[in-house]
Simulated scan of single mutants.
Amino acid sequence: MTERSASPATGIAVGSGIRRSFRRSRPIRAAAHVSIRQRSLWLIVLLATLALLVAASVAIGTRDVSWSDIWLALSGQVESIGQAAVTVRIPRTLLAVLAGAALAVAGTIMQGVTRNPLADPGILGVNMGASLAVVVGVVWFNIETAEAFIWVAIGGAACSAIFVYTIGSLGRGGPTPLKLALAGAATSIALSSLVIAFVLGRNDIAGGLRSWQIGGVGGATFERMEHVLPFLAVGFAISLLSARKLNALALGDDMAAGLGERVAFARTAAAFGAVLLCGATTAICGPIGFVGLVVPHLCRLLIGIDHRWLLPFSAITGACLLLLADILGRIIARPSELDVGIVTAFVGAPFFIWIVRRQRVRDL
């Protein structure tokens, strides 16, 4: 009796599995057929938008400055109030670009790793975990150096991510999108309450910590950013190198393993890159929410779901979004300003509701 005739049921099962795998892989193949011309066109549009927003960020604020002042300030002259304003806005603009790109890439990674359309550093409690770790470090251990802030924030982000994923994995069905979203929301609320409890007991530092907790890019300096750049560089590198692994994970764990991918290692490596980006960004900017939720969905509408394209596009779009939020915050509340954390919350909350209604909390 031949092997083929000995196990017809197995052959039917294998054939059905291949057909199911093919149907699940069709979206990735369809995304791969998005023309290079379309992607290149969108890339040009996004880069042009980013350049315009960078120029607007330098020119717009509580005091508008002329292009001559901008040019003179860029050449090193600080002889007027306008030129001094430009020298302050340049590091702020750079920080907004880096933070927006980092949070958007982290959100894309988290959605790919968990296959959850609601995944986001803020919604899954990662940002709040980093925030609590920093607050505990300041209140109990009196940390002051930038390096200590970054390491503590990354450790808190990692612990929170592991906790949420563990809680969301309990019970039948494993880590479903709904359970992860609920676990992340509950964890964020609990950690936020702990942050308030710790801060209330220290009136001497409460004002600074509360301002930092809102999330913003004001007060940025090149000296502060020097410490965070290596962590962001490593996080971006790991995330971009995980693109092919995320494409394999999108086919399902069984299919990814059948293609020779080490599923556990792929998830851990990609998640580590996202944690680095979240922790480092939170350490210097505070917890900024919804950027990692909004941007990946917008980019998928433009260029498909291939992570080799999605991650770079998310970085550029995230930088544009956070820059735009920072500019709007300066315009809306003149002569004062709104921190970007407030503006992104106004944008992200309705988008979150729309995603829930549209996706019905399905897997990616």
Rank of each mutant, 00 (worst) to 15 (best):
L72Y: 15
H33F: 11
S40W: 12
G100T: 10
T62E: 13
A73W: 13
A55H: 03
V86H: 10
V65S: 02
R37D: 00
R37S: 03
G76R: 12
L46K: 05
V45P: 03
A55T: 00
W71T: 13
R39P: 02
A55L: 11
A51W: 07
L94C: 08
S80E: 01
S35W: 01
L94H: 11
S57Q: 06
L95T: 06
V97G: 09
L95R: 06
W71L: 13
R37V: 10
L47K: 06
L53D: 01
I70E: 04
L50C: 06
I36C: 02
G100A: 03
T93E: 01
I60H: 03
Q77G: 09
L72V: 12
V88Y: 10
W42E: 00
A51C: 09
V78K: 13
V45A: 07
A73K: 09
I60L: 05
R63A: 14
G100I: 11
L41R: 06
L47M: 15
W71N: 08
D69M: 10
G76Y: 14
L41S: 01
I44Q: 02
V86N: 09
V88K: 06
E79T: 01
L72D: 15
S75W: 10
S40H: 10
G82F: 01
P27V: 03
Q38M: 11
A84G: 15
V34M: 15
A51L: 01
Q38D: 12
Q38Y: 15
A32S: 02
A55R: 00
V45D: 03
S25E: 04
P27E: 03
I70R: 01
A59H: 05
L52W: 04
L43F: 08
L47D: 06
A99F: 06
V45G: 00
R24V: 10
A32E: 04
G82D: 02
I28A: 14
V97P: 05
V58S: 08
A85E: 14
V97H: 15
I81F: 08
R29F: 07
L43N: 04
R92F: 10
L74Q: 15
A101S: 09
E79Y: 00
A55P: 00
I70L: 05
L41C: 06
T87P: 03
L46Q: 04
I81N: 10
L94G: 09
S80V: 02
G61Q: 11
A96Q: 11
H33A: 06
V34E: 15
L50V: 03
A73C: 13
R29G: 07
S35C: 04
L72E: 15
L47H: 11
A85F: 14
R92Q: 01
D69N: 07
L52K: 04
S57G: 05
W42C: 07
L41W: 05
D69R: 09
V78N: 11
V86F: 08
G61F: 07
S66W: 14
A99C: 09
V45Y: 03
R24Q: 11
W71M: 13
A73E: 08
L47W: 10
I28V: 05
G100V: 12
L41H: 02
D69Y: 04
